[in-house]
């Protein structure tokens, strides 16, 4: 497949209030592997089916939320090309030196109109514990906890989602797969961006405050995996938001819950495949209940307003 430019969401750096509790949650409940703890206190993790060194970075802080979301691009030349285009588009582009995170090459960094910091990078070390490549078994390490396959996407909240849409579409080469618009004005309320065959790699919701995290999402195998995740959520008294249920948007099957610092997580399965020639799918705000929760057909106030 001709997938160039931005390949996929690579990693997120999330702020947690208590590192010990966060490690138990992300490792033992979601099922990530702890890759390393570095001298500055940051903890690096990965899901069992990811080739790259890490995908989740935890940083202890007195405030929860998202430090940054990073996308992997196809080459160093592509990285330079994006830096040039972002600068030409009026963005202040900074360089993060290789090695700022262990195993990660040079990054370029910019702040989108919704106040979120996004980084791009081309190089990261491969993990020793990634998927096998010689006569490969389905997994090298036995999947643990909710058996998260990979870090998949984020939903972020901020004010100028039209501005962030523009930079992702026009400079970074993403497509909008689906969106929610106001019935009368057509104003975009929520949008789903993809750089791949997935229904979404990044989602945005209009919100009065910039730079907010709604959720960090992990892929799991199927509908029964969502039920197994729900069992773990109750067994270990994890704070549940909503689910198991299904989204109208993307058609993903899902359950939402909170990490011990209040950052929302999702594990989801399914959803359609997107191709760049697919027509845009549009939901009117008057049908947004079904768009978000296909079975309940109504919104849950906590899901819409609680962010970190």
């Amino acid at each position: 497949m001709a997938l160039n430019g931005v390949l996929r969401p690579g990693f997120v750096q999330v702020r947690v209030l208590d590192m010990a509790e966060a490690i138990v949650h992300y490792r033992d409940r979601i099922g990530l592997t702890l890759v390393s703890t570095e001298s500055d206190g940051r903890v690096y993790m990965k899901a069992y089916d990811e080739f790259d060194r890490h995908s989740i970075v935890l940083r202890e802080c007195d405030e929860a939320g998202l430090d940054l979301m990073a996308f992997k691009v196809c080459s160093e030349a592509s990285l330079d090309d994006f830096a040039t285009k972002l600068a030409a588009g009026g963005y202040e582009v900074t360089t993060v030196a290789a090695g700022e995170q262990p195993g990660v090459g040079r990054r370029i960094s910019f702040v989108a109109p919704t106040g979120h910091r996004f980084d791009l990078y081309a190089e990261i070390e491969l993990s020793d514990n990634g998927p096998m490549t010689n006569n490969p078994d389905v997994s090298q390490l036995d999947p643990q906890g909710m058996k998260a396959i990979r870090f998949d996407h984020c939903l972020l909240y901020g004010g100028d989602i039209d501005g962030t849409k523009k930079v992702f579409e026009e400079i970074l080469g993403f497509s909008v797969s689906e969106m929610v618009v106001d019935d009368d004005t057509g104003m975009i309320i929520a949008l789903f961006l993809t750089c791949s065959n997935k229904a979404h790699d990044l989602a945005l919701v209009r919100h009065e405050e910039d730079g907010k995290l709604h959720h960090v999402s992990f892929l799991v195998e199927d509908w029964s995996s969502i039920g197994a995740a729900a069992d773990i959520i109750t067994r270990y008294d994890v704070s549940r938001d909503i689910g198991p249920t299904r989204h109208g948007i993307t058609r993903g099957m899902t359950i939402y819950f909170f990490d011990p610092s209040g950052n929302r997580n999702e594990v989801f399965a399914g959803g359609y495949h997107y191709y760049p020639d697919n027509p845009l799918r549009v939901w009117k705000a008057s049908s947004v209940g079904k768009a978000i929760f296909y079975y309940e057909r109504e919104l849950n106030d906590r899901f819409m307003t609680v962010v970190t």
């Binding site: 209030l17 007195d62 929860a64 909170f258 610092s261 209040g262 950052n263 906590r302 609680v306 970190t308």
Partner: peptide
Amino acid sequence: GCRNGGCGVCKIRVTKGEYETGK
């Protein structure tokens, strides 16, 4: 809200009595 100290939705002010807090 999140039930875990991150989102601020359950903010209160204690006007009488003793209590302790987590993070």
